[in-house]
Simulated assay, not measured.
Amino acid sequence: MNNFSLSQLFVLMQLSDSFFPSGSFTLSHGLEALVQEGQLHSWEDVLVFLRLLLLNKIATADVVALIHAYRGSAKDDLDAVRAADAQLFAQTLIEKTREMGRKSGRALLMVACQTWPDSQLETLEIEATNGKIYALHPVIFAVVGRVAGLSEENTVLAFSHSFVTGLLGAAIRLNVVGHLQAQKILRQLAPDLAAIYPIAAQLNLDQMWSCTPAIDLAQMRHKKLAYRSFAS
């Protein structure tokens, strides 16, 4: 392995590590509500929950926006990045999800500006501060991945892996799975993680879609829980 490929491997590991402070670890994406309501009981239930999110939302909406934002960033076309950001915001119907996407995206942007100084990131940070863009997490992640030197596909992989490990961490904290079961789930999700890029790469922004109604409703009910450990 040459130095360049080793460098990219380190970046991929850094961005996909839950240690990276983007704020996404505070999100359960409806998992907390489903657990408290007794609808998820086992690691198999968590596996199904994650597969539904990955294939019916992440691959067909979040990552589609990420890919188009990455391509815009690669061409130094921030209008394309803004278009991906606006389209994903319009496609995200749940207010709390939009809100948390903005918060985690801006947290990621703040950290990235200090870690990988770049004119695009600086411009986006100013626009986010001034309310000119939403700065949703997948869109900012795309630009950060490009700036840090990751390929388009590896940026998708880092994003998807980070998403899954974040939710598995939430499942552990909610006591619905143990650490060994979480590793078993992650291993079984490997084919699904590999399938995300080919699915998303063929879709235009106006072809984005999602269909996770039970999970969406759980996210809406989250704010009414008697106690909450997560922001969503």
Rank of each mutant, 00 (worst) to 15 (best):
T92H: 10
L167Q: 03
H161N: 08
A65F: 07
A84N: 04
S162P: 00
L174T: 02
S151Y: 10
R228F: 06
V81R: 00
Y134V: 06
L157H: 10
R173F: 09
L55R: 12
Q219G: 15
A65P: 02
Y197L: 02
W43K: 10
K224A: 11
F4S: 10
R51D: 06
N56L: 13
L6A: 14
L52Y: 11
P213V: 04
F10V: 13
M100C: 08
F163A: 02
P198R: 03
I140V: 15
S7N: 12
T155A: 14
K103F: 10
L174W: 10
H161R: 13
P21R: 03
V111C: 10
I196A: 03
D17Y: 04
W43T: 05
Q181V: 03
A86W: 04
K224Q: 12
F19A: 14
A231N: 07
E127I: 06
S42W: 05
Q8C: 11
L6G: 00
N3R: 14
V164H: 05
L157M: 12
R98G: 02
L66A: 04
S151Q: 04
Q120Y: 09
D17G: 02
N130A: 15
Q8N: 09
K103Y: 12
R146E: 13
A148D: 01
Q114M: 14
M208N: 02
A86Y: 11
G30I: 03
A33I: 04
I172R: 11
H29E: 09
L15F: 07
V111H: 14
I185T: 01
I126N: 10
G72F: 13
E152S: 03
D206E: 12
E122C: 12
M1K: 11
A80Y: 05
L186D: 09
R228C: 08
M13W: 07
H41N: 10
L157I: 12
L186M: 12
F20L: 05
V35R: 01
L193M: 08
H222I: 01
L31P: 01
R51E: 15
F19M: 06
Y70E: 00
L121H: 01
D192W: 06
L225Y: 12
P138W: 05
L93F: 11
F141D: 00
I172H: 07
R221W: 13
K224E: 13
F230S: 01
A33Q: 08
S151L: 06
M220I: 15
G178P: 03
L193F: 08
A107L: 15
D118Y: 10
C211Y: 14
S24F: 11
L6Y: 12
A214S: 13
D45S: 08
K223T: 09
K96C: 11
Q181D: 10
L174V: 07
A135K: 00
R102N: 04
M208G: 06
S18Q: 08
